[in-house]
Design a protein around this nucleic acid. Structure first.
Lengths: 125, 125, 125, 125
DNA sequence: GTGGTCTAGACCACC
DNA sequence: GTGGTCTAGACCACG
């Protein structure tokens, strides 16, 4: 799995790592039992402070997505946490709300955003 | 114009004010020449420190959206800064990218997001 | 004498008035004994607060450039204050220093400014 | 890079810092990628409140001159914002206009100013 | 009355 | 360690 960070995005590094891991798991690129890069290795690979990697892994572990085996490494949990459907929907709502608010601040309408997302879909298909 | 802050959102107060002003201008609720609430008045209204309001107004002034006349008040600029079409598109791209990145982190597909936004559209119509 | 204010310049109104009066006297447009517009008249003419006019006139009176005769009006002093040559030079130095500093902040060289001033000279001749 | 403040000038501290940074970048004393003094360090060095330094750095960041990396420090942007040539000329015009206006207020002619600036040039050469 | 600047100090987020 | 946000309150400048 390949990680990449964007320092200019304003999104903190540890969040970018978290999202990339979640994305990889959601896509199936990372399967239960798969090992993740070691903290030190990943830190070197993407040129960041090991503490930042630790923080990302720890949060993912707290969520139940990862498991660390002392001395062995960090792995994708065998039992992926089931997210309550209601909770899940609320999550999406929250994300959509925030981004729409930001978009409207720049004068974009809901349709503008809708078109933007549709366009991505075409590009990816 | 009505302002409201959400202390739990994690979004800094001054950013919330900035976005609400931008939104109001984009919607036409605030027109060029209109006076904004005075710093002290708004501070009292939404129960925050005047310095925080000043900061929000100041950033909007630096962007060219507002103008302040010492001793008189703060107004919406007569000449709203024109946003370059290319710049605008890049802005939308960035917003959509973040929207999708955040959503995918929770396992949502592009279609899930599309549905989420569509749903908003129906609600608002 | 015609006054005009530029609200966008950032220079406070009372300073703009002061400089315009000084300029008019320096040019000879206003001679010793000449009456200036009354405070109220000028305030109406240029659409500002009378207090602002009062402030400008008062500072000019303190410098000895104007004299107010209660109930009669404000006049250019018969005896224009002589500014010490050294003081005068220091004044110019200070003005030049500040503006050059600001110009350099935008990457302009001393020659750029020099050219800018020369250009004005040609335009005015 | 050495900073120095003049409390008597009437120019706000944060503006003085901004102009000194711009000047240093324009001169090449600060190059893209260079780190600036930390907020706290600079605050101690020039004996002002850290908030004032933050404010200066922040405005420079909004202009695109600096970039801050949370937890790491503040750096000169790799891509310095390009100033539109027209915009640049307007800026110079504005500076020259103010220079002449202020000078004429003290009875200096355009030639006096020209001499004053020329003199600076000789001194600096 | 209006906005602007600065300080002091608390608390937070990130690396 | 780094920068960021917010508060409280003083003092100033402008109209």
């Amino acid at each position: 799995m390949v990680f990449s960070l964007d320092a200019k995005s304003g999104v903190p590094f540890y969040r970018q790592i978290i999202e990339q891991v979640k994305f990889a798991v959601a896509r199936g690129d990372l399967k239960p039992g798969d090992q993740l890069p070691t903290v030190r290795q990943l830190a070197v690979d993407i040129s960041i402070n090991p503490n930042t990697v630790i923080r990302a892994y720890r949060e993912l572990e707290l969520e139940g997505l990862l498991e660390t085996q002392q001395g062995s490494g960090t792995y994708v949990s065998e039992k992926q946490p089931e997210i309550d459907a209601v909770e899940r929907q609320r999550m999406l709502d929250q994300i959509v709300t925030e981004l729409l608010a930001r978009a409207s601040g720049y004068g974009f309408t809901l349709d503008d955003v809708l078109d933007g997302v549709r366009q991505r879909k075409e590009e990816s298909s």
